[in-house]
Amino acid sequence: MNILLDLLSVLLILAGAFFFIAGTVGLLRLPDLFTRLHALTKADNLGLGLIMLGCVRFAPDGLYIAKMLLLWLLIMASGATASHLIAKRALRGDGEDY
């Protein structure tokens, strides 16, 4: 049973790492700012979620799990908002780089 749980954790963590790598690949390969934002927000949020899910097995107590959950929610909310702000700034062209 323990081995099965360990295996599940490892699979989740590896899947998470895969999405992080996909995010990096997207950031480097995609042609413009907007498409890169897609890669960054979606792949990294999912990657982080999977890694945290994989780490639940090693949590010392319930509060630790709650902290990971809150952290993930914070990252998702701030990631989505950040990508909206960056895209808006680029669309309106009112940032300093124009």
Binding site: A17, F20, R36, I51, I86, G95
Partner: peptide
Amino acid sequence: PTPADRMMAAQLLGTSGIGVLALLAP
């Protein structure tokens, strides 16, 4: 090429950094 692209890389640093910390903690 734009500051926004650089900002996004910094974002990546933040998210990946949290992933690394989540793994290192246990």
